Computed example of a mutant assay.
Amino acid sequence: MDNMNEYLINFKGYNFEKALANIEDLEKMEDFEIRDDDVFIITYPKSGTIWTQQILSLIYYEGHRNNTENISTIDRAPFLEYNIYNLDYAKMSSPRIFTSHLPYYLVPKGLKEKKAKILYIYRNPKDVLISFFHFSNWVVTLEATDTIDHYLEKFLDGKVVGSRWFDHIRGWYEHRHDFNIMFLSYEDLKKDLRSSVLKICSFLKKELSEEDVDAVVRQATFQNMKYDPLANYHYIVNNKVGARKKDGCFLRKGTIGDWKNHLTVEQNERFDMIFKSNMKNFPLKFIWDINEQ
């Protein structure tokens, strides 16, 4: 264990958010008891985590779909490694949905039995970088950075929560045969939410009526979520994390290609060079721009 700075704590080679991490929980993580019907959402930070929590909550909970239950998304699909409410996960009723940014080698061993399902959502890393930069400057539990140039260095060096993006996605992809896992891109969700929801349902073996699928898709659009306090983590920011400035929210823009508004030609070329050397022969496709087919 390594205390990197006041914001990060490094456990077994991976950076956690210091304000939220509990080392005793992390040490017990690999023995956490997995049920066959557990579902895990795994992401690198700022890759569509809340969006996926919302989609799965809408798929699994009728009360979430028809607004008869007032339960926030973070409580439907709590973070495994950041148990900020000290919930007793063993007492949660099945099927449980968990959210995690963990790398493949720190997840509970029981996930390798391949019964529980993992949905891995990935996003093009330039947009992840920009989103993370804004987010880190907004919440008080992360280190603020004065410029994108400075943040770019931190991100490429893995000196951020989640460590190196390249290691996270490659690690999970290269060990995909050890798990019951489906990979889906943020950009696919953005471009065709309905067919993505159907893909997710089919992976989870959840059969929904046409009407229910419509309800999921309608409530899981970015605009609807942004203005839904249950989906937008309002409570957490106000009571658990804290924001540096009033305007801002967990869900900022939710677009594809926002990096073009922020990166200079030089920064972009540097990123491309490092991306190419780290992602050689990597089969998953990345969409860098909203107009790409």
Rank of each mutant, 00 (worst) to 15 (best):
L56V: 13
I290N: 05
T73A: 09
S57C: 03
F250H: 07
L263E: 06
D149R: 12
N278P: 04
K205R: 09
M29V: 13
Y82L: 06
I42S: 14
A220E: 04
T264N: 12
G257M: 14
V216K: 10
R123N: 04
G158K: 13
D2P: 03
D37N: 03
H175G: 01
P78V: 10
S195L: 06
A116F: 10
F40P: 03
R123G: 08
D167C: 03
E33A: 13
N261D: 14
H234W: 13
P78I: 04
Q267G: 00
E187M: 01
F132E: 02
F250S: 02
Y89F: 15
I9K: 03
I200C: 08
E266A: 14
F40D: 04
D188P: 10
I41E: 02
K260P: 01
F79I: 10
L8Q: 01
P45F: 04
N66R: 00
E266D: 13
E153M: 03
S209R: 02
I84V: 14
L58G: 08
W138S: 03
D146K: 02
L80H: 14
D157V: 05
K260Y: 00
H175M: 00
E269F: 13
D37T: 01
Y104N: 00
Q53V: 02
A77L: 02
A231G: 08
S47C: 15
F286N: 11
I74M: 07
I42V: 06
I71L: 12
V197K: 01
M29I: 15
K190S: 01
H64Y: 14
Y233I: 11
K114Y: 11
V265S: 12
E30P: 12
L56I: 15
F155M: 07
H177Y: 05
Y151Q: 02
K91C: 01
V161S: 13
D36M: 02
Q267S: 11
K191Q: 12
S202R: 15
Y120H: 15
N291F: 14
N224V: 11
L189G: 07
A243D: 05
F286Y: 13
V241Q: 01
K280E: 09
V160E: 02
P108C: 11
N86T: 13
M273V: 12
G162H: 09
T68K: 10
K199L: 07
P283A: 04
K18I: 09
F271A: 10
T145C: 11
N22T: 12
Y227C: 10
R252P: 05
K46N: 06
F179P: 00
K91W: 05
I59K: 11
T43C: 12
S94V: 08
Q293K: 15
I59M: 01
G254M: 04
E269D: 14
I50R: 14
N86D: 10
V217E: 07
W288G: 01
I181N: 03
K199Y: 06
I74E: 08
N15L: 11
E174V: 03
Y85E: 05
